[in-house]
Design a protein around this nucleic acid. Sequence first.
RNA 1: GGCCCGUUCGUCUAUCGGCUAGGACAUCUCCCUUUCACGGAGGAAAGACGGGUUCGAUUCCCGUACGGGCUACCA
Length: 512
Amino acid sequence: MNSRKVRVRFAPSPTGGLHLGGVRTVLFNYLFAKQHGGDFILRIEDTDQTRFVPGAEEYIFNTLNWCGLVPDESPVHGGPFAPYRQSERKALYRQYAEQLVKDGYAYYAFDTTAELEQMRIDFKTTENPSPQYNQHIRTKMRNSLTLDAATVAQLLKEGAPHVVRIKMPEQETVHFTDMIRGEVSFNTSQVDDKVLLKADGMPTYHLAVVVDDYLMQVSHAFRGEEWLPSAPVHLLLWKYLGWEAEMPQWAHLPLILKPEGNGKLSKRDGDRLGFPVFAMDWIDPKTNELTIGFKQRGFLPEAFVNLLAMLGWNDGTDQEIFSLKELVQKFSMDRVHKAGAKFDYEKAKWFNHEWIKRTPARQLLKPVRQILGIYDPGTSSDPVLEKIIDLVKDRCTLLTDFAQQAGFFVALPEEVDTGAVKPKWDVKKNLFFTELLRTYQLSNTWEAASLEAGFKELAAANQLKPGELMLPLRIMLVGGKYGPGIFDIAAILGKEETLKRIELTLSLLEHP
RNA sequence: GGCCCGUUCGUCUAUCGGCUAGGACAUCUCCCUUUCACGGAGGAAAGACGGGUUCGAUUCCCGUACGGGCUACCA
């Protein structure tokens, strides 16, 4: 076993928004690192210039920041193993690729794209619909294994475009112990000769991940299950490069699946089913298309992190609500599931609701101000807003729900649903409210209990049932059939505002 | 097609050989609430299939079925 310091890395490619699965990988990396007093490092895998999307790297940082998963080392934070962008480490990879060729573990391949395509057509059969560049095919292609040394030297000298491919051994069994799956093994004759170094001199993921993990002294490598089939390539590379003793421990995380049907969760599913799959809003600079994020949908970062953690992990008890701090304490790799989990947006919203309920009003001040559009503390002071938040937060599942649940406190209702009272509206009720106006006008105190008492007294005097009058009052103050106790609302609204709204609606009901 | 991984209520999951199979979301019923929610009580709901091993299998092994992933000079 190695006693090295724990160092884990998350290495996204900047090709778009960070989706649920991506953030969960970050989370598990982070939790494991922090739990062991280790480092969580962020590396950017931007070796594919054709897919690189400007702005994506910054977006990744913003997401990590919002979630509270700040790396110890990264392209922006710096660190002892800089640079952390693969595009800036380009020169490094070539030398290792050459070393592999020299040692006979890899070879140059000069095949053109067209030749490769032709090969896939020529060797395609019903039994083998997708022929691979493997130990059989390579003997029929143009590479340093089939060409004589002089020709190869000449081609290289001429600068002929070429790639470096790993030479997979025949009939060897490669096996390793996955932290989640246990013993996993592969027969090398089943895996193809993957490209290690591309014609443009950039490494593929296979070479880069091994070289960088080695150089950056990564001790544990967590990634999605979709990487499992290429694990033998990486294992062999560690061995061929002579670094076997330093190889990190692997963990392949289960996939997050789409809610209906089967398959990996994709951005499309979110669009189709109406829920976010990205942590934060993502605008594709190529298409200008906006994909809504969990943040903008009204999720608290605590809830988002919590829901992600529970998608594939639990602590063995019935507890479901965990703070990030608690997760760091209780997380354990051996309780991560093997099977993929379908994403359930309803449950996700439940997590958010729980977090809104248990977050102190103070901490909700900022997001609520943003949603209500009141940035000026003068409009509504913090203490008042805190009172409002405490009154309504139980009925808010998303932060955006505060718009409806609390909007009427800070502004006149946009729409007053007079239709809800009009059918039963009559002279007696009109009279009652006119009198109520006078009573409230004269009252010295202005708090919920006395307002309610006065209301009921007056109702009795007019021989009306309070129940019939509460809804009209609610419509007057709130505008609709929702919100907390009506006298609590009136108390916060204040005398002037309350009377104003009653008068306003009263005239609306009289002169439609 | 090949290789790899997986399989407990509709969904997320507990169970590390003794199970009347527990919890949560969703759903249904009732209570609370003179709005809408929150909340409370309760109901319905699961071990893919077939073989072993064992006194005993959801749990261990094998096979089958089903699902998923990979099969690019993408990660």
